[in-house]
Nucleic acid binder design. Sequence first.
DNA 1: GTTAATGTACGAACTAGTGAGTTCACGGTA
DNA 2: TACCGTGAACTCACTAGTTCGTACATTAAC
Lengths: 214, 214
Amino acid sequence: MAAPSPEAERQRDKDRTRADILEVATREFADKGYTGARVDEIAARTSTTKRMIYYYFGGKEQLYIAVLERAYSAIRALEQQVDVEHLAPEDALRQLAALTFDHHEANPDFIRLVSIENIHRAEHLAQSEVLAGLADPALGGLTRILERGRAAGRFRADADPLDVHMIISSFCVFRLANRYTFQAIFGRDMLDPARREHYRTMLGELVIDYLTAR
Amino acid sequence: MAAPSPEAERQRDKDRTRADILEVATREFADKGYTGARVDEIAARTSTTKRMIYYYFGGKEQLYIAVLERAYSAIRALEQQVDVEHLAPEDALRQLAALTFDHHEANPDFIRLVSIENIHRAEHLAQSEVLAGLADPALGGLTRILERGRAAGRFRADADPLDVHMIISSFCVFRLANRYTFQAIFGRDMLDPARREHYRTMLGELVIDYLTAR
DNA sequence: GTTAATGTACGAACTAGTGAGTTCACGGTA
DNA sequence: TACCGTGAACTCACTAGTTCGTACATTAAC
């Protein structure tokens, strides 16, 4: 009778329902934290019911883990964007730093989830088979950049990829994760668009100056 | 009847009761977060009862704010320790960075409270009349160090005290606040004692290299 | 004896999770 | 093609257990 119209509004759609729940749950968990988030609230904002959350995910904790997995998997697209091979090591590094800077700024919910997960000592992340040990994809490119910079004698010999990654991350994460207390204490909004280019440039210089010092 | 013995176990002691509650509450809030913390649990770990928490602090939120105020006030001792005037700008800066590094490492509960407060968008900190606008005491010394370094032509002209403070803070805070997810993803414990001196030195070089580049 | 401090028991509201029944899509079958 | 069996997707109402906060009684101190 009814033609198979995949774009028509379907009342029963497994994937759509799951995706809907996940999206709403991401906002709720990022907003209120794991303990502060309410399953009833997530259900209310969904086009489906609470029973479906338990049907598809099992419980609050498993839903939260699914949210973490989806959020982390979104980062993996980052690696492909770095043009490692055709740039001078300094420029490649500056580009990687700027890319990380932009990515963090564009994904405040992800940063909040990471902060929340650290408050919980990564106990949920440890339960995820998908995520445990899944290294940041940006590391591969960074390793190659440092190798080339060292081989050319332009970077310090003791430069460690993970250390450099930590410097870049700490700067970008701090700017988002601690902006509220920083603003309350010092009266400066680290996310003020007028200061954005300043911070973006500063990060690049910070890393390059450290690697090329002496 | 009983002689006024201030050290004897007193059954009624306003200050002692308050201090006891505050200390227990600090651990509970830092451990579980604001929403995760339980008033009954705090009361149970105290030598007094839940009724006293409401008697002295009014409620869970006011208790949490009192905990924040106490934690922040503990930092104020930091400023006096920097020997700003008798050291070369580079050495004074290195000392300040190392001091911040040590202080953060020694006060993980404080870092957790700051993370938690940022998840809540500093809404509680904003309610505190004591804390709102109370700038980090380390800033004063830092400003003088940078002035001397610039005057001597050894530091870059555009060096801003708050920016430098942000660099130092982000490094130190990240090392503590994000250690769990960092460990889970990369398998490296940023708090491993064997790596402590490496990070401590690295922070000093990072800041100095940035300020003296070119 | 008056007031500050303390102990106990309780309640109203909330919260994660579930039991049980309903509707829909779809393929086989007479 | 009309019917039916089946399992997946879905709805609704309910509960057992928490959790913050408080009413009320009690005790120590001056």
